[in-house]
Write a protein that binds this DNA or RNA. Structure first.
Length: 592
DNA sequence: CTAGGGTTAG
């Protein structure tokens, strides 16, 4: 009879562990009650963890509250439950509650609560826990000690971390790895390697940690050396090296490694895609995504979709972007916030503002980036007024703007010619939100003044602002000088631009356009000579255009492209449309 | 009931 009961208990526990939905869990829960297990602490703990895994912390808490006198292990289970759902404040509050009941924490309590402190940077609480650990004699527990090492090294308190590490009575491979990782996050790769060589035991996690450390300081040689020497590599080892090459700009090494990999998971594919994305190879991002779908072994995840959409955005590939949108829906990412943000950006950058707004409106969960993407998208595509309206909507929704939000707002004002509003938003940014203006914000103000034709005020602003002007700012001014045919400030801007980049012929072309516009042909000729002296020719203008769902590069006066007829037909159509809307394109006065 | 390792967008 007793063994029968035991068997039933085991059966229920395995059922609880296999619960995939809350509905399923409810069914198993009724089994628990029907078989008289609702007062078994052991079983109730398993139910609580199952709730936690299904993100149902409220249910878990209810069950916990029904336990008459919860033991330490019950409390620990509840900590874990909140920890699993990233409710770190809740973990700490619950721990204090437990202490107020005079329940003594054990060696299982400290690691979880400390981890929560690490996650939310609660160093003060972490230090208090450290005191408690020492007082209650858990300093010798290797799980507790390791987590304390992690706590201090996470806040760059490497000496404190090392002291705890040294005082640990026994240091296993996990403790060594955490300590090595601590030195790596302090950028002390030498100390990290010294510990690595000193460690009595090496395993695959420790080696991967060390390899990642080398890549983070850009030492690809030592990273690769260590990787080649590893006797047992796991998939993560390969992915670490793949990502290392990707982040250090070696696309070729990244490609070569990818082809050599014995197996690939989603991180491998994302590594290669990220390698292309970080190094501006956007067309390859798209072909790799296609290849991944064709091989059909792993499904794209959130990161894949975000990177691919961002590549579409950079290419202005609307048709492809729409197709990725369909892929995202098909893979269950319609409600995903980050994917939503990438979709907004893709649609906005491709000029499909209605679609961008549709996606934005359909998002149940929006974050700061969603608002910023929408506001900046509107502002830079001629919808400055909508951008400003979106900003008030954002404030009403209780979202706090950051410095990027204000770049959108200020550039919106610049495009609309709202000079006074621009200045009052700048003031609000400083006074109401305590955001210190960056060079980009000042750049927006210069643009704001210059576009409004207030060139003297723009130059005066540049002189008086607290930051040193950058090349972007002078180029902005130069562009407006052409519009308003102001030679004086154009010459000043060129002079400054040449200091930044003496070899860039584009700047000379800009000024020569000003001379040409107002008929100062002698100055134009003098400038031609100066340009030639730089020894550089202006590269032909290059554009990206989507033809039959393929993004192609083509240069100005390009005759080589197989689809050139179609491209020029589309351009004719575009020119006609833009004339219709009152925009009269002019032929540029080019040098040579 | 506990501790160490990855990608993504403005």
């Amino acid at each position: 009879m007793l063994s029968c009961q035991r068997l039933l208990q085991e059966r229920i526990i395995s059922l609880l562990q296999s619960c995939k939905t809350i509905k399923h869990l409810r069914q198993v829960q009724s089994q628990v009650t029907a078989n008289g297990f609702s007062r078994s602490e052991h079983i109730v703990q398993k139910v609580i963890v199952a709730c936690g895994l299904l993100k149902e912390t409220e249910c878990a808490r209810k069950l916990f509250d029904e336990i008459p006198v919860p033991s330490v292990s019950c409390w620990n289970t509840m900590f874990k439950c909140h920890y699993l759902n990233a409710e770190h404040r809740e973990v700490i509050i619950l721990f204090c509650l437990m202490r107020s009941f005079d329940i003594v924490p054990n060696g299982y309590s400290f690691p979880v609560v400390l981890k929560s402190c690490i996650k939310i940077n609660a160093l003060r609480e972490g230090k208090e826990l450290h005191c408690l650990v020492t007082k209650s004699g858990f300093a010798s527990n290797s799980f507790v000690g390791t987590t304390l090492v992690e706590l201090y090294s996470n806040r760059n308190l490497i000496e404190a971390a090392y002291k705890i590490f040294c005082e640990m009575p026994e240091r296993n491979v996990v403790a060594w790895t955490v300590m090595i990782n601590g030195y790596i996050s302090c950028h002390d790769i030498i100390a990290a390697r010294r510990l690595f060589d000193l460690a009595p035991e090496h395993d695959v996690v420790m080696s991967n940690t060390m390899i990642l450390g080398y890549f983070e300081v850009g030492d690809m040689i030592r990273a690769r050396e260590l990787f080649d020497k590893m006797s047992r590599k796991d998939l993560m080892s390969w992915n670490t090296v793949l990502n290392g090459y990707a982040n250090n700009g070696d696309v070729e090494a990244c490609e070569a490694l990818f082809e050599k990999m014995p197996e690939k998971n989603i991180f491998s594919w994302n590594g290669l895609i990220g390698g292309y994305a970080h190094n501006g190879r956007f067309p390859q991002v798209l072909t790799t995504f296609n290849r991944m779908l064709a091989e059909n072994k792993v499904k794209p995840n959130e990161a894949t979709l975000v990177m691919v959409l961002s590549a579409c955005a950079r290419l202005g590939a609307l048709v492809l972007g729409k197709w990725v949108h369909i892929q995202a829906k098909a893979n269950g990412y319609s409600g995903n916030c980050r994917v939503g943000n990438a979709l907004i950006d893709m649609y906005a950058k491709s000029g499909a503002m209605e679609s961008a707004i549709d996606v934005f409106r359909s998002m149940k969960r929006k974050d700061l980036i969603s608002w910023n993407t929408m506001i900046c998208g509107l502002a830079t595509h001629g919808h400055g007024a909508d951008a400003l309206n979106m900003f008030s909507e954002m404030k009403n929704a209780g979202e706090k703007p950051d410095s990027i939000t204000f770049i959108g707002i200020l550039s919106g004002c610049a495009h609309m010619g709202f000079v006074e509003d621009g200045f009052s938003y700048l003031k609000s940014m400083i006074d109401d939100y305590s955001i210190e203006p960056q060079i980009e914000h000042y750049g927006c103000i210069v643009d704001l003044l210059a576009r409004a034709g207030l060139l003297a005020q723009a130059v005066d602003f540049i002189v008086k602002m607290p930051k040193e002007a950058d090349a972007v700012m002078w180029a902005t001014l130069l562009a407006s000088c052409r519009v308003y045919k102001n030679v004086e400030f154009a010459e000043l801007a060129l002079e400054k631009l040449v200091e930044f980049d003496p070899k860039n012929p584009t700047n000379y072309v800009m000024l020569s356009n000003v001379y040409g516009d107002i008929g100062r042909w002698k100055d134009l000729a003098r400038l031609k000579v100066a340009t030639r002296d730089t020894g550089f020719r202006k590269l032909p203008g290059c554009s990206l255009i989507e033809v039959n769902d393929v993004v192609s590069e083509f240069y100005s006066l390009d005759e080589r492209h197989p689809d050139k007829e179609q491209i020029y037909e589309s351009l004719k159509g575009l020119t006609m449309l833009s004339r219709l809307y009152g925009n009269i394109p002019e032929g540029d006065t080019d040098i040579d």
